[in-house]
Design a protein around this nucleic acid. Sequence first.
DNA 1: TCCGGAATGTACTGGTCGGTCCAGTATGGC
DNA 2: GCCATACTGGACCGACCAGTACATTCCGGA
Lengths: 195, 195
Amino acid sequence: MLTKKGAATRQRIVEAMAAEIRERGINAVTLEDVGQRSGTGKSQLFHYFPDGKEQLLLAVAQWEADRVIEDQQPHLGQLTSWAAWRRWRDVVVDRYRRQGVHCPLGVLITEVGRHTPAAQAVTRQLLAQWQHEVQVGIEQMQDSGRVSRRVDPRRTAGAVIAAIQGGVTILMSTGSAEHLEAALDLCLDHLRDYR
Amino acid sequence: MLTKKGAATRQRIVEAMAAEIRERGINAVTLEDVGQRSGTGKSQLFHYFPDGKEQLLLAVAQWEADRVIEDQQPHLGQLTSWAAWRRWRDVVVDRYRRQGVHCPLGVLITEVGRHTPAAQAVTRQLLAQWQHEVQVGIEQMQDSGRVSRRVDPRRTAGAVIAAIQGGVTILMSTGSAEHLEAALDLCLDHLRDYR
DNA sequence: TCCGGAATGTACTGGTCGGTCCAGTATGGC
DNA sequence: GCCATACTGGACCGACCAGTACATTCCGGA
């Protein structure tokens, strides 16, 4: 029902759409563009995504969401020392700075994610998982006595995610990662110093 | 060249477009919708905005940007005591919570603002002004000895703006203001406690 | 080798929407 | 009151694009 070749083509279509959206915005992308970029045509596209653009968009959202988490590993999963937090922070800032305006996370949240309820669910799931990983990191730091017990891990993890999200959104508007760095550093300072 | 009646019609068009965008997203809005809602037609629209949709969009961006700052006044302009910061915080959270998904700021930044370079300039200007107002507030608190001199006012103001921005973006994805509150409160805690 | 389903190419369509045209009406200054 | 100019209505056009139809080619298993 789906040969190896077919699966590869399908994947090429998803990645082509994702790249087009990142580079030119979701509104500007047409199915013809996607066909051209992926070396296919509309007939393949509708062959693999019978419900058309919307279904493809959902696949793109899922693909981008997976990448957001992936890109931060293995650091995000081992936030057990200040050095690890620092490394994670650097990876996040560096990656988003380099990606600049063409940032999967930003595009996902601000463009793809709000398109349909199904895509919204993908972003919600991404945010939840991300926040959870950070929360676990904070709890580990509390267990080893490096972060005050007065910090609410869940709420603070939420604040960290919001800070990154805001920094990235501003990065996409202005091209500068200053806000992202400032916001993330403020969160880490707070974790370190709050008593 | 523009009578009172004409100016009123023009303004009606801008507000109709803004409302439509807030409610249905920028992609879904057609010029016919705007005409219908404003009680006009396309001919008026092109009469007042000869360059069409793009020009209108820019006017909408400017109008929404002005409202973002306006909505926070007079609190934003007088951040001279912790009580004042608290009031400002409450106004921001309450307003955005009520507006939920239909938030001028969110729509401006994530949809309108990235459409064209001109609209980008509007959002940049908004962010700069906003950050500046917060920065002045921090400096005033430093002058009265309520905030540590070790805090960098400009950078911290940037972090605050990013925190709000991220909270709002997440609010638009999930419908919950939790992240906004957590992020903003973390910033204020940090201002209050950092030594 | 043959066959059936999967994979692909091409031409077409139907609807939508930004933008235009032009004719008619209000209005404010003199 | 008159006239220039601002304002308004509505029909129309042309481009663009998601989605369809159908014919053709590829390919793996029996």
